[in-house]
């Protein structure tokens, strides 16, 4: 386990993480008792910061509306015995497939074990064909994860399964590509022209994309191109070695 993971407890209780990091850290919490205790204590600490924002009286209309809405809202029934399980189920249900991919990162960059089962994924995105393809890659016993910060900002995470001949690319927080420009995804094999494996829509700065075939690819790259893409990358903003 990456030692750095534990230090996220502060940012986590402050809600200063994004959804991917939150999912990854919650996965970590399930396995790390010291972090669970720390999160409980720091969560308690953080909530005291709200002492300083208290308003003396909430508007009467708000109280009335809230009580009325509660009165017509059925409660979630949680049996004492099932409480823990269901709480975890609820938490997992919030995971998107992309977030689930990030969960893998907590395991470091070596071979990973995919631990979120497909039915959990189907909770969120049952109808999505892409979700199934993503799950297939993440589920592969040989899946490996690579991550790089990109030169102009943002990060790329690539999960590759040579067996399945597919990969999943998560891009996030890239800078705006500029007017009339897009990001394009490439796979590169020594001494061969780069092969385009995906294009983001105009102005889009992050995505989750299934790429393939990947069996022969040595390097993944992202470039900034005019809308419509290019035959070969012109402005490369980052590459990830896939080995």
């Amino acid at each position: 386990m990456n030692a750095d993971v534990h230090t996220l407890a502060g940012a986590y209780v402050l809600d200063a993480v994004d959804d991917l990091e939150r999912a990854a850290f919650e996965r970590h919490l399930a396995e790390c008792e010291p972090c669970r205790v720390e999160v409980a204590e720091l969560g308690e600490t953080v909530s005291r910061l709200a002492d300083d924002t208290v308003v003396e009286a909430t508007p009467p209309g708000l109280r009335e509306r809230t009580l009325a809405q509660a009165a017509r809202t059925p409660q979630l029934r949680v049996s004492a015995a099932g409480a823990t399980d269901r709480r975890h189920a609820g938490r997992w249900r919030q995971l998107t497939v992309a977030a689930a991919a990030a969960v893998l990162l907590a395991g470091g960059a070596s071979a990973v074990t995919w631990t979120v089962s497909n039915d959990r994924i189907s909770d969120e995105q049952a109808s999505s064909d892409q979700a199934r393809q993503i799950a297939a890659v993440l589920d592969a016993p040989d899946a490996r994860v690579f991550e790089r910060q990109l030169q102009p900002g943002g990060a790329a995470t690539v999960v590759i399964s040579r067996d399945r001949d597919r990969g999943v690319v998560l891009l996030r927080d890239l800078p705006t590509p500029g007017p009339g420009r897009i990001y394009e995804l490439w796979l590169i094999r020594d001494a061969e022209p780069a092969r385009s494996v995906g294009r983001l829509a105009e102005g889009v700065r992050g995505s989750t994309t299934v790429i393939g075939p990947v069996a022969q690819a040595g390097t993944f790259g992202v470039s900034n191109e005019p809308v419509g893409g290019s035959v070969a990358p012109t402005r490369i903003v980052g590459t990830v070695e896939l080995s």
Binding site: V13, D15, A40, G43, E44, V46, S47, A50, L62, R65, T66, Q69, A70, T73, P74, Q75, L76, R77, V78, A83, T84, R86, R87, G90
Partner: peptide
């Protein structure tokens, strides 16, 4: 309003072993 109704709806999930009730509510609110 959303948070308080959510508190009503999911109150059964509160686990006193993991912190105080007000922290639980305020975490949700934040």
């Amino acid at each position: 309003q959303e948070v308080m109704v959510e508190v009503w709806r999911t109150a059964g999930r509160f686990d006193a072993g993991r912190g105080s009730a007000s922290a639980w509510v305020l975490t949700m609110a934040h």
